[in-house]
Design a protein around this nucleic acid. Structure first.
Lengths: 231, 231
DNA sequence: CGACCTGTTGAGCCGTTTCAACCGATGTGG
DNA sequence: CCACATCGGTTGAAACGGCTCAACAGGTCG
C-alpha cells in the first residue's frame, strides 16, 4: 500500500484518475516532505530539479529584482502542482507561507513519467491553463487597479480560495477566514507597500465593510460593498 | 496536399513534429483566416468557440474592467497558439494589432483531436508553461517597476521578440525594429498612461539611449544603458 | 485647406510611497 | 517579576511619481 492511498488530495491533484499501477509507479518516485513556514522549497533561477504536489499548507511563488523588490506571482494551495516540468530553470522561488506538506518528485523522473502517461499530462495542461487564466486576471489588478480596488479584489479572492480547504462540496465563498499572508506578503502580492495595505485595511474596518479580529483574521461584513470597491 | 505543407510556421507551431496522417486530419479541421489590424478574433467572457495558430502578424490578448480600463495580458506572434482549449469561456479578448493570418479550429474539434494525440498536447503544455513563465515575469514589471524601468524592460523585450520573425537561426536581439503597438497599446501593456509612455520615450531619446526615426520605429543606441535602466 | 488622428508637451493635482515615530503583543534575561 | 528588546503592524507628515486635463504639433486624407 502506497502513501497515495491515504493522500487527502488524492482526488483533486493531478494524480486523480490515474489507474492503480500508475499510482504505484508515481508513488515510488515521489517522496513526502514537510516544509516549515518561511522555508524555501525552490530557488528562483536555480536548475529546476524538483516538482511537487501540495498536500497541505500554502506556498508562495515569487520573483525578485536585483535590488530586492519582490513580487508574489502565484500562490499554491493543497492539490496544486508546483515547479517547472520540461524546463531547465525555474522562473520563481517557492517558499512556504504556512507549515506545509508536499509530495516531491525529481524533475527528470517526473518528466519521463509524464511523457509516458498522456492522462497525467492532460491534467497538468488543464491546471496550467487555469493558472494562466488566473495569472492574467491578476495582471489586470497589478497594472490597472487602484489600492482600494486591489485590496477589495484580494479579499474577495481569498474568500473564495480559502472557502473549502476540506473535501466537502463547494460551499461558496467564506464569510470569515484566516489569511496565510503577513501584511508584507499582501503588499508583495498586490504591488503595494506595507503601509498602503495597512491603511486600506484600516479604512475598510472603519467603514464597517470588514471586521479584523486579529492580524490575520478577516470577516466580511458587507460583501456587496467589497464587490463594488473591487472595480 | 494540405495547406499545412506550405505553412511558414509549420516547424515552429504546435503542429511541428506531427506525422503526416495527423497533419492531414488537423488540416481538414482547420481553416485559414485573415484578421485585419484592429479586428477582434475572440471576445473576453464569450464562449470559447475557437482556438488558433498565428501564422503571420501580431495579436494582443486583453482584459478589461467594467469602466473601460484595459490591460494587455499577452501578445501572440507567428507560431504562437491562441484561445482557451478545454475551457468554457475565454478569459481574454484577442485583437489583431497588425494584419494577421491565423489557422483557426473549432474548439470542440481541437479539444477532441488533442486528447487523442498526446504529442500535440505535450507541445501545447510546453508552450503554456513557457507562456506562464513569461506572464509571471511581466507581473514583476507591473507590480514593482517604475515607469522608466518598465519602458526599458519593454524595449529590451521587444528587441528580442521581434528579432527573428523569419525562420533563420537565432540571430540575437534586434538593434532596430518596428513596434507593433501604438502608444496607447504600450501603455496598456505596461500599466501606464499614454502620456507617461510618451515622456519616457522622449527622455530616452534625449539621453541618446535610443533613436526614434518614426512613431513606431526604434533603434537601440546604447543597449547597456537600457539594461541598466531595466532594473 | 481644414478635419482628424496620433502623439507630444506642459501645469497642477492626487495617490502612493517614503521616512519616521509609535503601538501592542511576545519573549527573554537579569 | 518586571525592564527591555524584538517583531509585526499602524499612524502621521512630507515628498514624489505618475495621472489628469488641456493645449499643441505633425501627418494623412478628404
Amino acid at each position: 500500500m502506497s502513501a497515495c492511498d491515504t493522500c487527502i488530495v488524492r482526488n483533486r491533484a493531478i494524480c486523480a484518475g490515474l489507474e492503480h499501477p500508475e499510482i504505484t509507479a508515481l508513488s515510488t518516485m515521489g517522496r513526502r516532505r514537510t516544509v516549515s513556514a518561511g522555508e524555501p522549497l525552490i530557488w528562483e533561477d536555480d536548475d529546476s530539479l524538483l516538482v511537487a504536489n501540495v498536500i497541505e499548507g500554502v506556498l508562495k511563488l515569487t520573483t525578485s529584482t536585483a535590488d530586492g523588490r519582490e513580487q508574489i506571482v502565484g500562490v499554491a494551495y493543497p492539490s496544486d502542482f508546483i515547479g517547472r516540468p520540461f524546463g531547465q530553470t525555474s522562473a520563481a522561488s517557492v517558499v512556504a507561507l504556512t507549515d506545509a506538506r508536499v509530495c516531491v518528485f525529481a524533475r527528470n523522473d517526473f518528466d519521463r513519467f509524464a511523457r509516458e502517461h498522456p492522462e497525467l499530462e492532460h491534467k497538468l495542461l488543464e491546471r496550467t491553463l487555469a493558472e494562466l487564466d488566473r495569472t492574467r486576471a491578476w495582471m489586470m489588478l497589478l497594472g490597472r487597479k487602484s489600492a482600494p480596488e486591489k485590496i477589495a479584489t484580494f479579499l474577495l479572492d481569498m474568500s473564495e480560495r480559502l472557502a473549502d480547504n476540506g473535501c466537502m462540496a463547494h460551499t461558496g465563498p467564506a464569510r470569515q477566514f484566516t489569511l496565510p499572508f503577513s501584511r508584507q506578503q499582501v503588499a508583495d502580492l498586490l504591488g503595494l507597500t506595507i503601509e498602503t495595505v495597512s491603511r486600506q485595511f484600516t479604512k475598510l474596518k472603519a467603514d464597517g465593510v470588514v471586521a479584523l479580529p486579529s492580524r490575520r483574521d478577516v470577516e466580511i461584513l458587507d460583501r456587496a460593498a467589497l464587490e463594488m470597491l473591487a472595480g
